[in-house]
Amino acid sequence: VLVDGRATFAWKVSTGGKGHVTPTGSFKPTRMHQMWYSRKYDNAPMPHSVFFKGGYAVHATNFVRRLGQPASHG
């Protein structure tokens, strides 16, 4: 996470698994939700979602062992 052009936060993420693209680049958040349920992926819970670039979001997960490796829908 950059704040005023400075790296302020960093953490491992799980990007899209096989067949699911993760967009690359710099993005600004468009909306946030304390709890969101995916309309696209079987009502999957997406706690603390920060949406960007349309329907993509960064969100919390309980699957912390999978962090740092491809595991999501993009």
Results as ranks from 00 to 15, higher is better:
Phe27Pro: 02
Val1Thr: 15
Arg6Tyr: 11
Ala71Val: 00
Pro23Gln: 09
Tyr37Leu: 07
Ser14Gln: 07
Tyr56Lys: 01
Lys12Gln: 14
Thr61Arg: 03
Ser38Lys: 06
Phe51Gly: 00
Val64Lys: 14
Phe27Arg: 09
Phe9Pro: 01
Arg66Val: 04
Pro45Tyr: 09
Asp4Gly: 08
Phe52Leu: 12
Val21Ile: 12
His48Ser: 11
Val64Cys: 02
Gln34Pro: 00
Gln34Ala: 15
Val58Asp: 03
Leu2His: 13
Pro47Ile: 12
His73Val: 03
Val50Ala: 06
Ser14Met: 05
Phe9Tyr: 14
Tyr41Met: 06
Phe27Lys: 06
Asp4Phe: 05
Asp4Cys: 03
Lys40Ser: 10
Ser26His: 11
Val3Lys: 14
Pro45Ile: 04
Gly16Glu: 05
Ser49Lys: 02
Val64Ser: 09
Phe52Val: 13
Met32Lys: 15
Arg6Leu: 03
Tyr56Asp: 02
Val13Arg: 10
Gly25His: 08
Ser38Gly: 04
Ala60Tyr: 11
Thr8Gly: 01
Val21Lys: 12
Asn43Cys: 04
Asp4Thr: 05
Arg6Ser: 12
His33Thr: 07
Phe63Cys: 09
Pro29Val: 13
Thr24Arg: 14
Gly68Val: 02
Val1Cys: 10
Gly68Ala: 12
Arg39Val: 06
Phe63Tyr: 13
Arg31Ala: 10
Arg66Leu: 10
His33Gln: 14
Ser72Gly: 07
Lys12Met: 10
Met46Val: 10
Ala10Trp: 13
Leu67Ile: 02
Pro23His: 05
Ser72Asp: 04
Tyr37Arg: 15
Phe51Thr: 03
Phe51Gln: 03
Ala10Pro: 00
Ser14Leu: 05
Pro45His: 05
Pro29Trp: 08
Trp36Phe: 08
Lys53Leu: 13
Lys28His: 14
Pro70Tyr: 08
Ala44Leu: 09
Pro45Trp: 03
Pro70Glu: 08
Ser14Cys: 01
Tyr41Lys: 03
Leu2Ile: 08
Arg65Cys: 01
Met32Asn: 08
Ser49His: 02
His73Lys: 07
His59Val: 04
Gly5Pro: 01
Lys40Met: 05
Gln69Leu: 10
His33Tyr: 15
His33Trp: 05
Pro45Ser: 11
Lys12Pro: 03
Val1Asp: 10
Tyr37Ile: 07
Lys18Val: 07
Phe27Cys: 07
Val21Cys: 01
Gly54Phe: 04
Gly17Glu: 06
Tyr56Met: 02
Met32Gln: 15
His33Ala: 11
His20Val: 04
Gly19Ser: 04
Ala60Phe: 08
Val1Ala: 14
Ser49Cys: 09
Arg66Met: 13
Pro47Tyr: 09
Ala7Phe: 04
Lys28Cys: 01
Ala7Ile: 14
Val64Glu: 11
Thr8Tyr: 10
Val58Arg: 00
Trp11Phe: 13
Leu67Gly: 02
Thr24Lys: 12
